[in-house]
Amino acid sequence: MNDMIEGLIRKILGPESIQLDDSAVLDPGPGKIAFTTDSFTVTPLFFPGGDIGKLAVNGTVNDLAVMGAIPLYLSCALILEEGLDMGELTKILESMRRAADYAGVKIVTGDTKVVGKGAADGIYINTAGIGIMENEALRGEIAPGDAVLINGSIGDHGVAVMAERNRLSFTRGLLSDCAPLNHLMERVASNCPGAVKFARDATRGGVASVLNEIVKNRHFSATLNEASFPVKDEVKGVCGLLGIEPLYVANEGKLVMVCDGGRAEEIVHAMRETEEGREACIIGSIGAEYPGKVVLETEIGGRRMLPLLAEEQLPRIC
């Protein structure tokens, strides 16, 4: 049984790239490397616009990309629940392969364990990734006057998954934004060298959480302008129904970027040249008024805080 699974995995993920020895031996070239790992669980395993496999590849690619690294190699460790449908596993693996090919990374090593029925939820995937740093890490000195950018509409992934999970019969236009961000980051690096001070993919906790991480214990604040950030109509609709806030909803193909205010337009322009940045825009600015806080300016000109929320977003009725 296990041999069969191992064979299937190798055949799909990369007979040409997976090294069968105890470890993969790589030659990324001279310079620093970036190294990261992440584990993935999602219910349901398949959702509009993606599945756990695509998520596992793009998630790790993105963690490398937002540091300014060029992702090259991934590992893939699977924990499978006994009884997982082989057809589903095949689909997930094929999706991983497609995602890896699109991102331009190779899966070079992996591992599989099967656990008893009930000991896992279908399938868990861990991927680790290695990328090379051609430039310095994108972690500059943020200061008042800087601009906050995003590469497109927010909340798409979390809402697509939540709608599926809550058996709400939503139909049109609701897709996860699950996508790799390395092409976009590379375009920005080559068109606007040295301009990005910070970038992070806005996954769990959404855009609001990333902004809080940026300003926490610092002498500056981030102010968002409600009218300026892009939210798809469908996402607004589902969020209204379930009582959740798009700014706190997970994304899987969106990043928040901070740069010098004077170079913001240039970066937006570069992002828009890529598939993952078609709707890139400026959503706010770094200021000095409420140090350590994230502030939202509402459409009518009122202000409110956007704090860090540890709580999981549950559908609510009140």
């Binding site: 019969s169 939503f170 109509d233 589902v238 129904l241």
Partner: peptide, 11 residues
Amino acid sequence: AVVESRGVETL
């Protein structure tokens, strides 16, 4: 009934 708003339909 099926109802719709902002491109979202629900029963």
